[in-house]
Structure formats: C-alpha cells, structure tokens
Design a binder for these strands. Sequence first.
DNA 1: ATAATATATATGTTTGACCGTATATATGTC
DNA 2: GACATATATACGGTCAAACATATATATTAT
Lengths: 117, 117
Amino acid sequence: MSITPKVLLRSLSDQTRLRCLMLLIQEGELCVCELTHALDLIQPKISRHLASLRDMQIVNDRRAGQWIYYSINSVLPDWANELLQATLKGSKNEKQFKDDLKKLKGMPNRPNNRICA
Amino acid sequence: MSITPKVLLRSLSDQTRLRCLMLLIQEGELCVCELTHALDLIQPKISRHLASLRDMQIVNDRRAGQWIYYSINSVLPDWANELLQATLKGSKNEKQFKDDLKKLKGMPNRPNNRICA
DNA sequence: ATAATATATATGTTTGACCGTATATATGTC
DNA sequence: GACATATATACGGTCAAACATATATATTAT
C-alpha cells in the first residue's frame, strides 16, 4: 500500500519533521548529526522523528559506518512529491528554513556522505 | 501577512478539516449543513473546524439568509494552491473522499447556493 | 579491551488539541 | 409575538503525541 494524504499531512504537521524534510528535499541525504546541528535540537528528538518518518515510508535510511543517512523515499507517488515541492516553495521564504540551511552549510566536520568517495 | 506552510499543514493534519477542504476545492462553495451532511458529523464539530480555517484565512465565509457559505480563500499564495491541488489529487483515490462526495451529491433539500439565482 | 562517537529506544510526564453536550445567536416563518 | 432552522460558541473532559532524561546499541579507534 502507498502513502495516503492523511499520513503524509500528519507527518508534515510537526515542525521538527517538517524542517527535517525540507532540508532532506533540498540536500538529498543527511545524517542524524547534520540534522541535529542544523535544527539545533537534541539528538533523541531528531532520531525519534526520523524513525517516525521511516515507519511511514516517507524517508529511507542507510548506514555508512557509524552514521545513518536519511533521504526522501524515491518512490513516493506523484501527488506526494508535488505536495512536498509546494511545501518547499512555501518554506523558502521562511526565516526558519533559511536559518536551518545556513546552519547546515556552516557545520564544522560534516561527515562526507558521498556514496562514491 | 500571508499564510505559512506551518499553519496550512497544521490545518490539513486534522481529518475533519481535510475532508471539508477537499470538498470545498472540488465544489467551490458549501454551507455548514451541506458539509455536516456529507461528512456525517455533528454540526458543532463542523462549525468549530470551519471557524478555525477561517481564522487561519484558509477559507472565507459569506452569509446568505440563514445559511453561511464557506469557500477556499481565493487569494492564497501559489504554493498553497499547489499544495491543496496535490492533496486533492492524492485524495481522489481515497474511499473516504469518494464517499463524502457521493453523500453530498445525494443530499436532499440542498440549499441553493448560486449567487445569481 | 577500553574509550569515544553516533544513533536508537525506553520511560514517565505534560500539554494542547479535539471531543460531545449544552446553550447562545441569527434569520425566517407564521 | 412564538416557533423552527441554521450556525456559533462556551465548557469541561479525554487522549494522543510530543517532550526531556536516561540508557542501550553499534561502530570505530587506540
């Protein structure tokens, strides 16, 4: 079964999950420590919300050494991708989003997440 | 100030508000009793959620005699309209949405909501 | 094996949002 | 005026979900 509007919208209704997803859409793949740094929240909180997004099949995870990388599920239905893109479009004006992105870019010692190093 | 993703997504996270909005997008303008009938919920519940959507400037209301008609705010930003359209696209497969629409169409004594009668 | 780092999860608590019931308000009809 | 219909709101209760803290697990390095 594929995701429903009910499930996706419920997930997007929490600010922490929304902020994570916006960064993931924009950046492609991020690990927990990058998201923790960018959002300036405690690690268990980020992990908990990412686990929830994984359970809803909105994101996928991949282990690489001690890091676990999350990314948007690549096989979401069209309407879901369109919904996420519309949300990103709306978020780009938001101070919160800009700040998160800036914080991410400025993170020291970012782990290298390139699959082909 | 215009609506934010945070506010719109929070509004869409409740099933009652989501169902109302999907019918409003599809049908243009509906009164409280039509929505109450279509969703098969009690009137105060519908009114409460519509008031919330009005407060968030997602819908407008208009009185016509004893009826109050609600419709999607016509000056939402592009991203918000795109988000709603994507949601509608995803909802059209859903049994819940189909049932709501069928119930609305089959409602006896629907008030006539045409502005120019 | 010990220590350090990254991530996940368990636990108990709190809070905000939704709920149903009751009631108030507004309009129309007789 | 009295009554019916449509809608809004106030009130108190309930519950899901989010929270912080503490701890467990996994990986890497020394």
